[in-house]
Simulated assay, not measured.
Amino acid sequence: MSDWPKVRLHVVTGKGGTGKSTVASALAIALAGRGKNVLLCEVEGRQGIARMFDVDPLPYEERRLTTGLPNESGGRGVVHALHIDAESALLEYLAMYYRLGRAGRALDRFGFIEFATTIAPGVRDVLLSGKVYEAVQRNSRNKGAIDYDAVVLDAPPTGRIAQFLNVGGEVGGLAKVGPVKAQSDTMMTLFRSPRTAVHLVTVLEEMPVQETADGIAELRAARLPVGGVIVNQVRPKDLTPDDLAAARAGALDRGRVEADLKAAGVEHDAALVDGLLAEAQDHAVRRALEDSQREIVARLNAPSYELPRLAAGIDLGALYELAGHLRAQGLA
């Protein structure tokens, strides 16, 4: 069973380089594996989803992307994808709520849309998060749109996530009353509800773990719901504690290594054995660092999940493998 059965909006954030987009993509596949229709969104303009799935750059339009993992009965849902940009989101907003279809496009030609999304601080984030809200809370204004069981947002980095989701505070400096203020208040009702969870991706290194801790504190201060901490790129745990200690101290039994190589039919010389011993020591040192940072993650008062480091890199098959790990641990 999922740890988050009531959540419809899964926001995935993390420090750059931790694999945030990879985890968001794997989570979407895992959620769709329970027979759900899932929308995977991105808002940073990097076309990361397209690169991740090796497809053409995504337009401002929901596109079928892939299917989820099969569930116990063999059924599977569908993952759709959407690349959200602020200019297109504003045009859609004007068309849906003010019926400014052609007029809105005319404003775009005159450069007003770009002006409006850059001159007022916070407007861009309000528009981007507003489209995410619309995808979760579909209404009659968006006729024919798919009703999704879950939405996964590949969100801005940890350092910006509280500001990005706290649209009430952003709009407060722009409008005290009116439709924009009313809509932002409605959005905050969703973002602060049990239907939303903000998951934070980290790796077991000092700076990413500290940024994760700071991000959790900022989210809680803004009364935004913290989800799980996904520890990504975890090294394999193939060595026993005694062998790890010996490797870290540079005291592995050289003769044992040579005997194992010989038993495996691997030709070797002193240089190869020296290289293997050096790599073993580096691995053991990194494992000790990971263990110390894992203890800090355990004190963050949030559920944690771990994903392995995949030596072959990330492709579609790897995303399905990671999705299986997320499902098995209960994140999806």
Rank of each mutant, 00 (worst) to 15 (best):
L200P: 07
Q183E: 12
V201T: 11
E205Y: 02
P194R: 06
M207V: 15
G173E: 07
V201C: 07
E206G: 14
E206F: 12
P194F: 04
Q210C: 11
V198D: 04
G173R: 09
F191C: 01
G168E: 15
E211Q: 02
V171G: 02
K181Y: 11
G178C: 03
R192I: 04
G178V: 05
V201A: 05
E205W: 05
G173S: 06
L204F: 01
V203A: 01
G168D: 13
Q210D: 13
F191G: 01
M207E: 09
S193T: 12
D185F: 02
R192G: 08
L174M: 15
V171W: 00
A197I: 01
V198M: 07
L174P: 09
A175K: 10
V180S: 05
T186A: 12
E206A: 14
E205R: 12
K181L: 04
M188Y: 06
Q210H: 14
K181C: 12
K176H: 15
E211C: 02
G169E: 07
V209M: 06
A197M: 07
A197Y: 01
T186H: 11
K176F: 10
M187R: 02
T196N: 02
A197Q: 03
V203G: 01
G173L: 08
M187Y: 02
E205N: 08
V209F: 00
E211L: 03
K181P: 04
T189Y: 15
M207L: 15
A197L: 07
D185I: 10
P194L: 01
V201Y: 00
T189K: 15
V198C: 05
G169C: 08
G172C: 05
D185Q: 10
A182G: 11
G173Q: 09
V203T: 13
F191D: 01
S193Q: 14
E170Q: 14
H199A: 06
M207G: 07
K181S: 12
H199Q: 09
T202N: 02
G168Y: 05
H199D: 02
V198E: 01
T202Q: 05
V203S: 05
G178W: 05
F191A: 03
G169H: 09
T186K: 14
M187I: 09
G178E: 03
K181H: 14
L174N: 10
V203L: 06
T196R: 01
R192Y: 02
G172V: 07
